[in-house]
Amino acid sequence: MTRAEFPLLSGFLYEAIFIPEGAAPPPRTVLLSPPLRDYVAGFGSRRDDRALVAEAAGRVVGAVWVRCGAGFGRVAEGVPELAVALDPACRGRGVGTRLLRAMLRSLADEGYPAVSLSVQKANPAVRLYRRLGFRVVREHPEEYVMVCVLA
């Protein structure tokens, strides 16, 4: 991801919000809440900020990014938390899997011991994360915190 593309992360963060079937999507202003804002505010300014994108037909259709902070899936100092999202029209085509695998390889190559994420239990992406080696380390009533050990 180029620095010029960093502003796209807000839109992808909105797409990363799991909306159960039949539920109304939240207003975009939800991105202004401190817990969500931390995933994208000032992206690129922290030492551990990393992002990759998927492109199709000359436009960015997906993103995966990590940063160390105080997000919902934080597990330990030095373990970045991951977020991933795709344009809805690109879901179910393996794009997210390729993005995630590329990020996991990159983080392992850079010496990170692990990466974490939070995901709603009802989100079908839980199956993908399990296939890629993520394991539940903490459970809340509606979400999992998962970790993939990289070393």
Rank of each mutant, 00 (worst) to 15 (best):
G44S: 05
F18N: 03
V147Y: 05
G44N: 04
R46C: 09
F72L: 09
R67L: 14
G42V: 08
E139R: 07
R74N: 11
P34M: 04
A4P: 05
V79G: 00
G58E: 10
L100M: 12
V30T: 11
A83P: 10
R46N: 10
A56G: 12
M146N: 06
D87V: 05
L8H: 07
E5A: 03
L9Q: 01
A23Y: 13
Y129N: 06
Y144G: 00
C68I: 12
C68V: 13
I17P: 00
S106V: 10
V64K: 00
P34Y: 08
G111A: 09
L31Y: 08
E139A: 10
A23W: 14
A122M: 11
V61Y: 01
V149Q: 15
R130S: 09
P20D: 09
E55Y: 11
L32D: 15
V66C: 11
P35E: 04
M103N: 03
E21Y: 14
D38V: 14
A102E: 10
V79W: 00
L128K: 02
E55K: 06
G62K: 02
L99E: 03
L99V: 01
T97M: 07
G133K: 09
A63Q: 01
G69R: 04
A41V: 13
M103H: 08
P7K: 03
E110V: 07
T97A: 08
L104Q: 00
R105H: 10
A51R: 00
L36M: 04
L13D: 00
V119W: 04
R28C: 13
Y39E: 02
A51K: 00
P124M: 09
R131Y: 07
V75S: 05
E15D: 15
R135F: 07
L31I: 07
Y39M: 03
G58C: 07
S118L: 09
R28G: 11
T97F: 12
Y112C: 10
V149T: 13
L9T: 02
Y129D: 05
P25R: 05
V119M: 08
P27M: 08
R28I: 04
V95I: 05
P141C: 06
M146C: 07
M1W: 11
G71L: 02
A51D: 06
S10A: 15
L99P: 00
T97Q: 12
V149L: 15
